[in-house]
């Protein structure tokens, strides 16, 4: 938990330093905010690690197929990265790039979920065939 307070203090400090720096060197200020975003995201993901272990344990208990959880986890990862990258682009004043980045993430998640949709369709076909 100590890491969380450290990260929060670091982010707040970086906001103030970024404000001071932004008057003269906007590009370096943007890079500072990107570096802090990356560090905070790394810490957030390190907190998520036990949660993912718990999910895997629940998957074993429910005897789900291994593909389902892996697709879900990949979608979460893509979503996180695309969201952070999109926000950074929007912060840099390039909203078009930010939107494109988010669209890229959405497209990647849709592409990932094709096997699940196919499995769902097969299930419906099976149920309808049995009736």
């Amino acid at each position: 938990m100590e890491l969380f307070w450290k990260a929060a203090a670091g982010v707040l400090m970086a906001v103030i330093l970024g404000l001071v720096l932004g008057k003269q060197e906007k590009d370096i200020s943007l890079m500072l905010s990107m570096a802090v975003c990356a560090m905070a995201a790394i810490i957030a993901l390190s907190y998520l690690e036990p949660v993912l272990d718990m999910l895997r344990q629940m998957e074993k208990l429910g005897s789900l197929g291994g593909d389902m959880l892996s697709v879900l986890l990949k979608a979460v990862g893509i979503g996180l990265v695309a969201e952070i990258a999109g926000m950074v682009c929007a912060d840099a004043g390039n909203a078009a790039l930010g939107k494109t980045m988010q669209m890229l993430g959405t497209a990647a998640v849709l592409w990932l979920s094709i096997p699940i949709f196919n499995a769902f369709l097969m299930l419906i076909q099976q149920i309808l065939g049995e009736i």
Partner: peptide
């Protein structure tokens, strides 16, 4: 996994010096 506060200061210092 640690929050490398010195990286923030490094980048800010480089920005101010530049």
């Amino acid at each position: 996994m640690t929050m490398e506060i010195d990286l923030i200061f490094k980048i800010a210092a480089i920005g101010i010096i530049v």
